[in-house]
Design a protein around this nucleic acid. Sequence first.
DNA 1: CGAGTGATTGACTTAGATCAATGACCGTGG
DNA 2: CCACGGTCATTGATCTAAGTCAATCACTCG
Lengths: 216, 216
Amino acid sequence: MRGFSVIPTQEMPIPVTSLDWLSAAIRQSSTLHKLEPGEALFHQGDKASAVFEVEQGRLRLIRHTLSSRDVVLHTARSGELFAEAALFADRYHCDAVAAVASRVRAYPKRKLLAAFRKDPALGEHFMASLANQVQALRTQLEQRNIRSARERVLHYLMLAVVEDGFTVPLDGTLMDLAAELGLTHEVFYRTLAALEKDGIITKSRSAITLRKRRLV
Amino acid sequence: MRGFSVIPTQEMPIPVTSLDWLSAAIRQSSTLHKLEPGEALFHQGDKASAVFEVEQGRLRLIRHTLSSRDVVLHTARSGELFAEAALFADRYHCDAVAAVASRVRAYPKRKLLAAFRKDPALGEHFMASLANQVQALRTQLEQRNIRSARERVLHYLMLAVVEDGFTVPLDGTLMDLAAELGLTHEVFYRTLAALEKDGIITKSRSAITLRKRRLV
DNA sequence: CGAGTGATTGACTTAGATCAATGACCGTGG
DNA sequence: CCACGGTCATTGATCTAAGTCAATCACTCG
């Protein structure tokens, strides 16, 4: 069984979709949108009316620049919340376009803000979730500063570890993990193989385990 | 004169130190701390009592892992706010250690929370700033997914542009910029040189300018 | 006027990307 | 029940762009 491990949210690198509390409180006023591949959810300059959650699929946030080319600001994946800044902005400052067929839940900005005002605890929740995301993203960025694949992977593993301090449960595919680390899957496989050969980790289908070490 | 350009906060890649409003409101209850190189500001497990701003210097946020080695979660630089998550956590989950002699301003958590409760607008401000940081960080991460130095630099330039859509003012040194882009300064210089040779940009001491292009 | 730092360019090396092939596994439909 | 197509995992061979080492020049600051 996967996807069952209880991982402290702070520890995890990315989505941290603990907007369950959000859903619970605001679900009823949210709406669902289905998008064809290539279809736009909103455009740069549109009135910012909602914050979104990707239920399924993948959306690209794209900025159109004056100097011709378009720039991808972010790719939002399954489970992620995006366009949070819409809460405080008047208009969207980029396009959101489905990269593949996607399903998106929209949380109306006014409702959210109203809910936050009415129930400050809810607002604090949201604030906390943002703060955690900031931390996680900064950590991921720090990780990307590590050039060596081996060190990068180790950096990740040491942080992705569960409470025992040694086990990293594997939830998705290794390919996805490779992408998250900013490595090609080939290099990632090789690196894991090398680490295993050097006795630094052991690897099973469901987890990677750091071996205890005496010396640094 | 540098450091004078007015850049919409959303656009910028990283610090976005628009906590001026914060300072204004809470400055008086904040305290200043001076740190020697190597000196710790707080330790993993300490009661989380404050959020900090680097006024000068550079701090490393370090997590101690069970599997011996320490991991750098983040390096906070001049102007950056850090340990925001302390607001919602009971204890710090990493050490903060001065990388060089540094000066740090501490904003007591209780004061901040109290202020947010008393003046919801202030809280919303803070929330907005967090949301913007999340966006900026995600964008920077997207940028790091671009392997080619040339494309990465272009990606950066197109987003760092001021309102005219073509001018990127140079505030710090090119070396710093290179680091921010995750490139060695040599490669960065070469890339800029190549882009200039190809007529895609022009470069002066104080700015880089994207040349208009007809075709993609 | 020297020391220190940033900017710049050349030469060389290498780690990671890329291309390719193979086997394991899994669901599905006949 | 099995053959087939698809995805993931894995490994080999090769290539190249980015990293590394190194040298030079311009500039600023005491």
